[in-house]
């Protein structure tokens, strides 16, 4: 499944994700103008930016949904931009992604949504599917038994739903859930196959402050309990300070400032300062 021998596996000092000189234009309009960003293994990087600054475009490049015009996106040292379709499918198995609107399949129950990645993987592949245990730092811990896969997947789904605080919601339809519950169900689906890397697209947008705080706590818990590397796209400065190991600001297609929260929040850069303070006057033109 992994497609790599032990000798080829990345070392602990290899970044989980490294983006070099990423450029992308749509219809001649440049959106990303040379993004450089490093996501260290087991750390959470929060990319801040105004709406329309290219944050979601950056995330779609990391997961291979978009191809860059120029630049490299190295995931565990492998360039996803130049990978074949099979390699991309293999690399994506290392990711989990929480979408802005959760993107749950409306025709499936919560449990079916969460189980979907595993069920489909079982249906389409004949080899064993190995998953690490929640309480283990070993990546390849347990293999799902092919004879009892339905029961094992159901148990896993319940475990993940309990982890995000949605125990007992297995049989609900997505339309019966509140915004915060949908986001948490989306997170349960993203972690059901124990990914190495989690991507969050504006995880707290549109939620009330208490649910925002709860989602932030979940992001921290995912890093601490599962040891995942995370990229969070957001414009919530308060949440970013709480959850990030590294904060970065994407403005006009480039990263204009990055660093640990304590350094980043003291940055003298006028663009960073205006964003952090939420002022309408300054180098960032609102209109």
């Amino acid at each position: 499944m992994g497609g790599r021998t032990d000798a080829e596996k990345p070392g602990a000092d290899t970044p989980a994700i490294e983006i070099r000189g990423l450029r992308k234009s749509f219809g001649g309009r440049p959106v990303l103008r040379g993004v450089d960003l490093v996501v260290p293994r087991g750390k959470t990087v929060v990319v801040l930016g105004l709406s329309g600054s290219g944050k979601s475009t950056l995330l779609k490049h990391i997961i291979g949904l978009l191809k860059p015009d120029e630049g490299q996106i190295l995931v565990d040292g492998r360039d996803i931009a130049r990978a074949t379709a099979d390699e991309i499918e293999d690399l994506r198995w290392r990711f989990g992604m929480v979408f802005q609107n959760a993107a749950l399949l409306q025709s499936l129950t919560v449990a079916e949504n969460v189980a979907l990645p595993l069920v489909e993987r079982f249906r389409q592949s004949r080899g064993p599917i190995r998953l690490k245990r929640l309480d283990s730092s070993e990546r390849e811990g347990s293999a799902i038994d092919r004879r009892r896969w339905r029961q094992e997947i159901a148990a896993r789904v319940s475990e993940k739903l309990a982890l995000v605080g949605l125990a007992g919601s297995e049989n609900k339809m997505p339309s019966e859930l509140s915004g915060g519950m949908r986001k948490r169900a989306g997170l349960a689906r993203a972690i059901v196959h124990d990914p190495d890397i989690l991507l969050y697209d504006e995880p707290t947008t549109g939620l009330d402050p208490i649910i925002c705080r709860h989602v932030d706590d979940l992001i921290i818990r995912m890093r601490e309990r599962l040891g995942v590397s995370s990229v969070v796209i957001s414009h919530d400065v308060e949440g970013a300070v709480r959850t990030a190991d590294v904060m970065a600001l994407l403005h006009e297609g480039v990263i204009v400032g990055q660093g640990p929260p304590e350094e980043f929040t003291k940055s003298p850069d006028p663009v960073v300062r205006q964003f952090l303070e939420g002022r309408s006057e300054g180098p960032i033109k609102v209109l």
């Binding site: 779609k60 949904l65 990645p117």
Partner: peptide
């Protein structure tokens, strides 16, 4: 499904 990003979600899940 396309406009709700459900198809993007399928691709991300290697489906």
């Amino acid at each position: 499904m396309r406009v709700n990003e459900e198809i993007d979600a399928l691709e991300v899940m290697s489906i």
